[in-house]
Computed example of a mutant assay.
Amino acid sequence: MTIRYHFELRETIATILADNEEVIQAASMGMRTARSELERYLVRDPFFGTSYEPVQVPDHPIIARRMAQAAEKAGVGPMAAVAGAVAEHGVAAAQKSGASFCVIDNGGDIALITDRPVRIGIYAGESPLSGKYAFVIRPTDEIYGICTSSATVGHSFSFGTADSVTVFSSDPILADAVATAVCNVLTISDKSCLDELDTEIDGVYAIFNDTSIIWGEVPPLVRAEKRDDLITTGGLGFFTRES
């Protein structure tokens, strides 16, 4: 039986989906460790936590370095990638423990490994498209990222107007940073920012009220029944196990 576990640690509010308690514990410890490493680094370099521009991180820890690298590629501040980074570290810890199935939704930024199809629902606030469709993610033994940013939902700062921008990539940290970057500038009339995306980005799906924009390769879309109980607090995504 699949277990759905609510995880909270200061600003991190996440949902973990796994098959047993051992995987839940491993994923939770992975996220705790990631946050601890990052918080220690922020004491040394508080500018890392406030900059809206890329910053240089010449050394340690690996979570800060990877966030900075993703931010450099996306042209945003490194904290734009924090949720994806914490989620990825949780899934990596679960995978190291022997898990073949673990989904972590960290406020709409999702990292996963899965041995079965899963549906990732689209939650985009007041948009009429919100909750009506879901992406079918195929089984993968490599960590995969589905990260969403919004200018109208949640507490994260955005310069844009999109109800949701969802980015797909094998690098969840980069997906998180790029989702923020694209959401800041993408409009229905100006999609030029999509032509400059990093080659590691597979696809983008954006919603503006009742209009959607698709770029690159995104997973298949199917109709879905909205389940508010599956939406992580403050999040933009929700997921269900495919039957």
Rank of each mutant, 00 (worst) to 15 (best):
T2F: 12
I3Q: 13
I3T: 14
E8G: 12
E8W: 09
L9W: 04
R10H: 10
T12W: 08
I16S: 04
I16W: 01
V23K: 05
V23F: 06
I24T: 01
A26G: 01
A26I: 02
S28N: 05
M31V: 11
R35C: 10
F48D: 09
G49S: 02
G49C: 03
Y52Q: 12
Y52S: 14
Y52D: 12
V57I: 08
P58L: 07
P58E: 10
D59Y: 07
P61E: 00
I62P: 11
I63P: 10
A64Q: 03
Q69A: 15
A70D: 12
A71Q: 15
K73R: 14
G75W: 06
G75L: 06
V76D: 06
G77I: 00
P78V: 01
A80N: 08
A81V: 03
A81F: 03
A85V: 02
A85N: 05
H89R: 12
G90Y: 02
A93L: 10
S100K: 14
I104Y: 07
T114C: 14
R116K: 15
P117M: 06
P117H: 09
V118Y: 09
V118P: 00
R119C: 14
I120N: 12
G121Q: 13
Y123A: 01
Y123D: 00
A124S: 04
A124V: 02
Y133W: 12
Y133N: 11
A134V: 02
V136K: 04
P139F: 03
D141P: 05
E142R: 13
T148R: 03
S150N: 07
S158P: 09
F159S: 09
F159Q: 12
G160S: 07
G160L: 04
D163I: 02
D171M: 05
P172N: 13
I173C: 11
A175V: 11
A177R: 05
A177K: 06
A179L: 00
A181E: 08
A181R: 07
V182G: 02
C183F: 10
N184C: 04
L186G: 01
C193P: 03
L194M: 08
E196M: 12
D198C: 09
T199G: 07
V204P: 01
V204G: 02
I207H: 04
D210W: 06
I213S: 00
E217I: 13
P219H: 00
P219C: 03
P219D: 03
P220V: 14
V222A: 01
A224P: 05
A224R: 06
A224D: 15
K226V: 03
R227C: 11
R227L: 10
D228T: 05
L230N: 15
T232K: 03
G234S: 10
G234E: 08
G235E: 13
G235P: 11
F238R: 08
T240I: 12
T240L: 10
R241V: 15
